[in-house]
C-alpha cells in the first residue's frame, strides 16, 4: 500500500530493542530504511528495554515500571514497530497482562499492544508492500530462515519474512528441518542453564549446516547471537544476519554477526568467509 506522501505521514515509533541498540545498530537502520520505504516517517524516542528480563524472571514490579516507560514514550505514534518477535510479543501480548489489575494502565497497554507489530508483519500485513518493488535488495546466495519462537507463536510471524525474502534478487531460500524448534536462547536461560542451552543450539546448527545454505537469517537478535556464536565455535563458515539487513540491502555495510569486517566491500554477497 503506497502512501500519498502529501497527506499526514504515518508516524512509526521504532522500538529498536536493547540487543539491537547494543550489539547490532545496523539492524535498527535497516528497519528504519524499510519502514521509510513503506511510506512512513520513523521516530526513535529515547528507549532502553521492553522489560522482558524482569518479566520472565518473575519480577513483575520492575517489569511494570519499565513497561510504563515504554507505553509513555511510544503511545503517541500511529504504530510501534519492533525488529524482534520476542520484544514485539512482550509489548503486544504481555503488557496488557502485566496491568491486569490496573484499569487505566491496562487500557493504555492494550491500546499500545493493538498498534505494535514485528517488523516483517508490519511491512507485509499492515503496509502490504510489494517486496520486489519496494525493496530493491539483492543478495547472491542461499539462505535458510529460523523461525524465532515468540514471533512465531505469539505474533504469527511465519510467512511474512519468507514473502519479503522472495523479493530479494538472486537470493534462494531453503528450509531447514524442524525450523520451528527453539534455538535454546531463551533470554536469561542461555546463561543460567548454559550447558542445556548449548546442547539445544547444537541441534539447531546441525539443521542449519545440513541445508547447505551459506546464510542463516532470523528476525530476532537473541537467537542470532546464539546461533552465530555456536556456528563460529563449531568452525562453520555459514554466515548469520538479521533478516532486515538483507531486506534493506545493507549487507555491504556491516560484516555478518560474529565476523570481522576486514574484507568490507568484498563481502556483501553472502559468500563464505575466509576468502
Amino acid at each position: 500500500m503506497a502512501n500519498d506522501k502529501s497527506k499526514t505521514p504515518i508516524n512509526v515509533g521504532l522500538f529498536a530493542t536493547c540487543l539491537v541498540d547494543l550489539f547490532r545498530p545496523t539492524v535498527g537502520f535497516a528497519a528504519a530504511r524499510l519502514i521509510e520505504a513503506a511510506g512512513c516517517a520513523v521516530h526513535v524516542p529515547e528507549q532502553t528495554c521492553c522489560g522482558q528480563p524482569a518479566y520472565n524472571s518473575g519480577d513483575s514490579r520492575h517489569a511494570r515500571q519499565i513497561a510504563r516507560q515504554v507505553i509513555e514514550s511510544f503511545e503517541i505514534y500511529d504504530y510501534v514497530v519492533v525488529p524482534s518477535g520476542s520484544c514485539g510479543g512482550m509489548i503486544a501480548v504481555h503488557y496488557p497482562d502485566l496491568f491486569a489489575d490496573d484499569p487505566d494502565w491496562n487500557r493504555r497497554a492494550r491500546a499500545l499492544a493493538a498498534k505494535t507489530f514485528e517488523l516483517t508483519t508490519f511491512l507485509a500485513d499492515v503496509m502490504k508492500i510489494d517486496a520486489a518493488e519496494a525493496i530493491s535488495a539483492a543478495h547472491d546466495g542461499t539462505a535458510t530462515y529460523h523461525d524465532a519462537c515468540a514471533g512465531l507463536r505469539e505474533l504469527g510471524v511465519r510467512d511474512q519474512p519468507r514473502e519479503l525474502l522472495a523479493g530479494v534478487k538472486d537470493l534462494a531460500l531453503v528450509e531447514m528441518d524442524d525450523t520451528e524448534a527453539c534455538c535454546g536462547f531463551g533470554g536469561t536461560f542461555c546463561v543460567k542453564y548454559g550447558e542445556i542451552s548449548t546442547d539445544i543450539v547444537s541441534r539447531k546448527t546441525a539443521e542449519v549446516v545440513k541445508t547447505g545454505a551459506d546464510l542463516l537469517l532470523a528476525g530476532d537478535l537473541g537467537c542470532l547471537l546464539n546461533i552465530a556464536g555456536r556456528l563460529k565455535r563449531e568452525g562453520s563458515s555459514v554466515q548469520v544476519r538479521h533478516v532486515a539487513e538483507v531486506l534493506a540491502g545493507m549487507t555491504g555495510e556491516v560484516p555478518p554477526i560474529g565476523e570481522i569486517g576486514s574484507e568490507r566491500g568484498g563481502e556483501n554477497n553472502g559468500k563464505k568467509d575466509g576468502n
Binding site: 547494543l22 545498530p25 526513535v44
Partner: peptide
C-alpha cells in the same frame, strides 16, 4: 563474566557504537 555463554559458544562482538547514539 559470561562463562554460561562462552563455555559453549563464541560471543559475537558488538559493532561498537549503540544504535541510539548513531541515530541521534
Amino acid at each position: 563474566f559470561a562463562g554460561g555463554w562462552t563455555d559453549g559458544r563464541d560471543l559475537p562482538a558488538p559493532e561498537g557504537q549503540t544504535f541510539q547514539e548513531r541515530w541521534r
